[in-house]
Design a protein around this nucleic acid. Structure first.
Lengths: 219, 219
DNA sequence: GTCTATACATGGATAGAC
DNA sequence: GTCTATCCATGTATAGAC
């Protein structure tokens, strides 16, 4: 009945301490960790038995902390998305020159090629997007929107570059990077269609910088 | 570099002619169609009961044509990939000017935003890529490799444009388009982060043309 | 080949002891 | 809260009649 979880995102007061998992007992942390591993490795089809086993607790213990499988799944995805929520590019980067800025953004994005959790999360989100569209919405609102927004803001505000449609350019830049991750890591392109991340970063940065210069020339 | 006609980069020795059995009875066609709808709508978790119902036959009839669920699934995905296999851009396009070429490629790719089968196929491929990696490999070899290869070939051969790394540019161009489809249609971005396909196409074509011109100037 | 009926296993969820 | 044991629905696959 009364759920131990409290304090969703408090509107008026910004809590200086962690808003979530105020008291996560030893067992609860075990459950969360185990369920995370199970879901990310096997998708939503991971059985509750496997989850309990992975967590090192009994199945009933899982159910004493989470109402049902769907609740557990959504809670975990939501939790993961929070962790990956970009805390924002460092402010000094927003005032860096275009070459530094785009190169840094590309490198940060491509560093996720090594992050098994991020890659698995992406796969599960896409896999379950039809069944649970809300999770895809959370992903878009927490990760994609801020990322593309900041890119568009930089493009719009920086004097040295000028594009007709900063938002579209931002989405192209972001999309090329994310697709490369999906391609290489999820769809096995790392083996069937290998290409180094440096080549993608180099060409992408060149592309946008050259186009920006050309647009400048044409003014 | 390599022969454009044959590209069976695999060890298997499959006769190039008669790639598929010609006899598909009435029932068998029903099964295929029903299973296709069921799998694309609900993923691999679609039950054999639902598949049989969707096909309008009994469950046993399905099993009399396909050994088990996994075989049926793989056969269908393989069949779908064949249908989507790009027959190659029309030869006259390969000799068109860059503006026409890239604009056409972008429009062709973005037309898949309206293709429910393609979108569902993409989702299922990603969803099952961990469990059945071979299907992802087939997708990459049949669709992604030819598409990016032709883009890279065009970039390499056309006198009017010059990039340091045509293959990387090809993958960026292709990736930005495919990611836009994943974003808008699979991850629900069409509602949460709307953007017209024309804006993406315009900015992407501008980006590559301007960058190409700039590279020309710098020669 | 095609159907109805069924065997067998798995999975989500609960009961009851401690 | 935590465990073991269990219920019951669903799912894959098969048997047997026609």
């Amino acid at each position: 009945m009364t759920e131990p979880n409290n304090a969703p995102s408090g509107p008026g007061t910004a809590p200086p301490e962690r808003p979530r998992k105020a008291r996560s007992s030893q067992k609860e942390q075990q459950i969360i960790d185990g369920a995370l591993r199970a879901f990310l490795a096997r998708g939503y089809s991971a059985s509750m038995d496997v989850i309990a086993q992975e967590a090192g607790v009994s199945k009933q213990t899982v159910y004493s902390h989470f109402k049902d499988k769907e609740t557990l799944f959504s809670a975990l995805i939501d939790r993961l998305l929070d962790e990956f929520m970009s805390a924002g590019l460092s402010p000094e980067l927003m005032s860096a020159d275009p070459g530094t800025f785009f190169r840094s953004v590309a490198n940060i994005a491509l560093s996720r090629l090594d992050d098994w959790e991020y890659i698995s999360l992406l796969r599960v989100l896409i896999a379950e997007s039809a069944r649970v569209p809300e999770l895809a919405d959370v992903y878009v609102n927490r990760l994609v929107r801020p990322a593309t927004q900041r890119l568009a803001d930089y493009i719009s505000s920086n004097e040295k570059i000028k594009f007709k449609d900063p938002e579209a350019v931002a989405r192209i830049f972001h999309g090329a990077l994310v697709h490369f991750i999906i391609m290489q890591e999820i769809l096995n392109g790392k083996h069937t269609l290998p290409m180094s991340r440096e080549r993608i970063a180099d060409s992408l940065v060149d592309l946008i910088l050259f186009a920006a210069e050309k647009t400048q020339d044409a003014r």
